[in-house]
Design a binder for these strands. Structure first.
Lengths: 110, 110
DNA sequence: CAAATTCATCGTAATTTTACGATTAATATG
DNA sequence: CATATTAATCGTAAAATTACGATGAATTTG
């Protein structure tokens, strides 16, 4: 309990859930907003724009990285984060595929 | 702790997070797959297609309903669920707006 | 009306998530 | 080399999530 039975779902379902989970917290959406807007994406700069502590932001960055949506390049003492375009596109396509599937005149039952 | 500070985020960030959260579990994606595919969307039929107990499915349905993505019509003893087209479109647009924002030649920093 | 069906809700347990301060490792700067 | 700066990680606590069986409410059906 408290554990998801990943074994019983399709690759599509798991993939979509993974990307959606990355976007399921406003702080992570806010981080992505910063990365999409800015050139400089030094971790410290992100921390400055968010109402969260450095350690909490670092954790959110780790999750975004785990989902593949961002990557970080070490640059001396600091780390520069940015969108991973390839994976981002994949997320867009996967989510789009699901969300675009309501084209027909809709199910007749409700 | 354990609680998100919703006060400090924009409406866009909260809205996207809300929809993404609804899609952040493979069981809920699977439920939506069923609703998108089927005409008949009786709760019991959904339970039959998922590897989860009736009470667990009911809980997931509740969350999808809370996010606005689905609605349920009582029909005698059973309940017929279906996609809420209006809200679904909103989710699609909100998520699309974020995900489509990587059109430019990408940030130069990484 | 009794029995069956359908589904929501309750109670509970394990796990995960969210958040923060403190510490640590690594690099830069005086 | 001592000191600062940057960011990850650790430890911890509170809360939310996931899951299930049991119970309840509502509606059919016999």
């Amino acid at each position: 309990m408290g554990t998801t039975k990943t074994k019983d779902y399709s690759a599509q379902e798991l993939s979509i859930a993974k990307y959606a989970k990355a976007l399921s917290h406003p702080a992570r959406v806010a981080i992505l907003n910063v990365l999409l807007k800015r050139q400089s994406c030094i971790c410290g700069a992100i921390v400055d724009e968010l109402p969260l502590s450095q350690s909490t932001v670092s954790q959110h960055l780790k999750e975004l990285k785990a989902a593949g949506l961002i990557k970080g390049d070490i640059d001396g003492v600091s780390v520069c984060y940015c969108i991973d375009e390839k994976e981002w596109t994949k997320a867009k396509n996967q989510l789009g595929l699901l969300l675009d599937r309501l084209t027909l005149p809709a199910s007749k039952c409700c």
